[in-house]
Simulated assay, not measured.
Amino acid sequence: MNTGKIILNPGEEKRLLDGHPWVYNNEVNRLLGRIQSGDIVSVYSYQGDWIGQGFLNTQSKIFVRLLSRSEAPIDLDFFRRKLIIAKENRIQAGYQDTFRAFYAEADGIPGLIIDKYGEYIAVQFLSLGLDLRKQEIVSLIQEVYQPKGIYERSDSPIREKEGLPSVSGNLFGTTPKWVVTNEGECRFLVDIQEGQKTGTFLDQTQNHLAIRPYCSHKRVLDCFSHAGHFAIQAAHAGAQSVTAVDLSEDACQMIQKNQEENAVDLTIVKRDVFDFLQTEIQQKATYDLIILDPPAFTKTKNKLPQAKKGYKHINLQAMRLLTEGGILVSASCSQHLLLTDFLEVIREAAAEAKKQVQLLELKIQGSDHPALLNLESSFYLKFLIMRVSSL
């Protein structure tokens, strides 16, 4: 039974009753009983009505991360059921080899990220309450997935906001640094121990596959290529030529490894994308399909205007390089750039380039990264496939 109680300020319960999972520190009126960060506490409205229960962290702006709206005890079986339901949902959606097996608040356990890479698991513990229950969660992961190894990648900046240090290392079995994963008909190397996020960008898996119907016999340019997923899918789908551009030497080496793994032809260019696009325009180069998948241009709201300029610029340059009726694939993973903002940026770029843009497909992150309608930040990834023609 929870001994700590959180009483909200008047009216603050509405957002929570609508499904939002977080109680912010400025919404709390008073604390009753045992108050210990990491504990599970009960949350009540100012009038004394039950709201839910969740992890407490008095040092965080997110004061309580709700786990349940029920008054039933939160025990080991509670967490077991959550993991099993999340696994069943992924299997139902068709995931088999490599996918996000658990996605924090969206799957009902705040701060827990579980990524499956074939026979191995990478995990992140991003909230204090969860971190204190690490061994229990690791045991449940073993029970539900029977992996050969579990590797912790709790090296996200989010932990600092929870008052937690960056941690990484093996938690169970033996986890190799490199594993080979399947993405459709292609294979990709993943660095579980030091790769981006927990190894790679699993949220784009379905989007990598979505470009394939547009690639046959086309000249393709993949900007901000990272590990080359879009480029290699394009080459495998029958593109006439594929150019992958990234400024990072590590990224270019990874693209080459994945190119060799899939025995496809492509050109790898180590260069700043902004400079590359400008040079290609000056040289009057053209492409039939251009992919823009940059890193987040901003991680804070106050830099959003600058980020919009960056997104507009690269989309404008890409439109100028496309052949008549060419395909522009444009993505943004900036959570502060809303879909409406992103579409406005595309409209502004099209107007300046004097182009007509048809939106063919609009996607978010894959279904193994479900978004909560009540949590706007979970709609962080925007992915557009467009046809661009002259006005």
Rank of each mutant, 00 (worst) to 15 (best):
Q365L: 01
L343Y: 07
H369K: 04
L372R: 06
L372F: 03
A349F: 00
L362R: 14
I346L: 15
R347A: 11
A351G: 08
L339C: 07
I346W: 02
D341V: 10
R347Y: 09
L372D: 02
Q365K: 02
D341S: 09
T340E: 14
D368S: 05
H369L: 07
S367V: 12
L373Y: 13
L339D: 06
K363M: 12
V357H: 01
E344G: 05
K354L: 11
A371N: 05
Q365M: 02
K363D: 05
L373P: 14
K355F: 02
L372P: 02
E348W: 04
K355R: 15
V357N: 02
L359T: 10
V357C: 04
L362K: 15
E344A: 12
K354P: 01
L338I: 10
E344N: 10
L360R: 00
H369C: 07
K355A: 03
A353K: 12
K354H: 14
A350G: 05
T340Y: 05
F342W: 08
Q356V: 05
Q356T: 11
Q356E: 09
E348P: 05
E352M: 14
K354G: 08
L373N: 13
K355M: 06
A353Y: 10
L339I: 10
A349K: 00
L362N: 14
V357W: 00
F342R: 01
L362A: 13
L359M: 14
Q365F: 01
E344Y: 06
L338N: 10
V345I: 15
P370Y: 08
A349I: 00
Q358I: 10
L343F: 06
L339K: 10
D341Y: 10
A349Q: 00
A349S: 04
A349V: 00
P370F: 09
E352L: 15
A371I: 06
L343W: 04
T340D: 13
P370L: 09
A351E: 13
R347K: 14
L373M: 15
D341R: 07
L360K: 01
L338S: 15
L360N: 01
I346C: 09
L359V: 14
D341L: 12
P370G: 02
A371Q: 11
L359D: 06
I364V: 05
S367H: 07
A353N: 12
V345G: 01
A371Y: 05
A350S: 09
Q365Y: 03
L372H: 04
T340Q: 11
V345L: 03
L359P: 06
G366W: 00
A353L: 09
R347L: 09
E361P: 02
V345K: 00
L372I: 08
S367L: 11
L372C: 05
H369I: 11
L359N: 07
E361N: 11
A353W: 09
Q365G: 06
F342L: 08
Q358T: 13
F342H: 01
T340C: 04
L343C: 09
L372M: 15
V357S: 01
V357I: 15
D341Q: 10
Q365N: 03
E352V: 13
S367R: 07
L360I: 08
L372T: 04
D368L: 01
G366E: 00
A351V: 10
K363R: 15
E344T: 13
A350K: 02
P370D: 04
A353T: 12
I364Q: 11
A350T: 03
K354V: 08
D368G: 03
F342C: 04
K355L: 02
L372Q: 06
A349Y: 00
V357K: 03
D368F: 01
I346G: 06
A351F: 14
Q365P: 04
